[in-house]
Design a protein around this nucleic acid. Sequence first.
RNA 1: GGAGAGGUCGCAUAGUGGUCUAGUGCGCCGCGCUCGAAACGCGGUAUCCCCCAAAAGGGGAUCGUGGGUUCGAAUCCCACCCUCUCCGCCA
Length: 428
Amino acid sequence: MIDIELLRKNPATVIKRLGTRGVLKKEVEALIRADTKWRKAEAKVEQLTAQRNKLSEEVPKLSSEKRKQRISELRSLNLRLLGPTGRGDLALLEKSRLELWKKLPNLPLPEVPVGSDASANHVVTEPLLPLPKFSFLPRNHLGLGISLGILDIEHAAAASGSRFGAFLGDGVRLEFALVTHAFKVLAAEAFTPILPPALIKRKRMDAMGYLDRGAEEVYTTQDDLVLVGTSEQSVGAMYAGQVFSQKDLPARFVAFSTCFRREAGSHGKDVRGIIRVHQFDKVEMFSFCRPEDSVREHRFFLELQKRLMEDLEIPFRVVQLCTGDLGVAAAATYDIEAWFPSRNAFVETHSTSNTTDFQTRRLPVKFRAENGQLRLGHAVNGTAYAIQRTIAALLEVHQTADGTVRIPNVLRPYLGGQDTLRRSDERH
RNA sequence: GGAGAGGUCGCAUAGUGGUCUAGUGCGCCGCGCUCGAAACGCGGUAUCCCCCAAAAGGGGAUCGUGGGUUCGAAUCCCACCCUCUCCGCCA
């Protein structure tokens, strides 16, 4: 949720900044009106309540005659308090105010390029590594994975239908190698490793900003729990209500979890292979920090992501999302896009967002500043490795003419020194 | 899933319808005493929201959560959540 104080004090700024991401002026104005009405009603109800409390406190001191009279007065006062102009009305006003409030996305940071959709995104960094040149027609990750025997779509479909995949053999070992490497690199940067729950309470998911727009992406259960689409949601949810000491910030976490997405709005997109599936695994970075540090923390996350991709020797570029392409909770987002030779294109493998106080306000997550003041924290999240997409990119980039795939140096120690992925019937 | 116990201010505890603006102890902060410290004494020490705002101030809500009874609820009633102990089931 955005800062409603800011909206009250400076509505023009909020309208302008949200306008850059496609929020209509009337949506913001509707909230202002609802807020004003609610505040008036709130003041009125509180005044009646104060009066009620005062008269009620005196009851035990009154003589029995006066007491009867006072109690009947209080009964009628309570009727007013609870009636249509009292608390009932207030509850309705509060509800509609909250609904309008929750619908507004986060304010983009000033440096975010303005644009209406992905076509206005800025390429920040061109690939540092040269794009691979092949003397043969490069195969896609799906064909490679199947022929290497590390990817099984067919049997996964038998179990679960479309948009599912299973890793086999070296594919499994490759996943664990990536996970182990990410945890190793990030542990050295003061990230606390965490294996969080993948099912979280609906209200926590709501606080993280994933239910007001895009709720159709979320798998639900019969138990008021929802499946996470990223462990960012789990880690944020875990620290709902937390008050950190300032000295413990930034509080960094590296999480591994399976992620579940319905992909309801992506009809026909990336249907083949493991680029876009209902279930995937991801190592995720998450940090709670001071507001004045979140921009720096966000850049730090981007640097870590670049390093993790460089370690895999996969060419990539960095894209800064424009205002119109930002997720609901994000104030600024960078994507990393890896080179996919079979597509002759870059495909998103990483994303890192500064969500400022949008999520921490509702969770809430605060910290005790050195002067004793209680303040809202900021939250920053970012992909370390999205396993399926990363393996897909790795297969494509490091494929060779004979159908084998070179394993990047950095991963070999985790694989007992193995340097190549080859068909199981070619081994020995 | 079943049985039992419990959830009150940072921690520990008191509180079974109005004297609770939730007491006490510990911790923490400030002041006093002291060369300094300990001890001692005095004062302070939650969060959210509304009004008015420069500040001060006024008001409301919160005793796990949500309902209910009542003029009035930490206290009575109902439902739920969580923790602990045991049983069952299970990886």
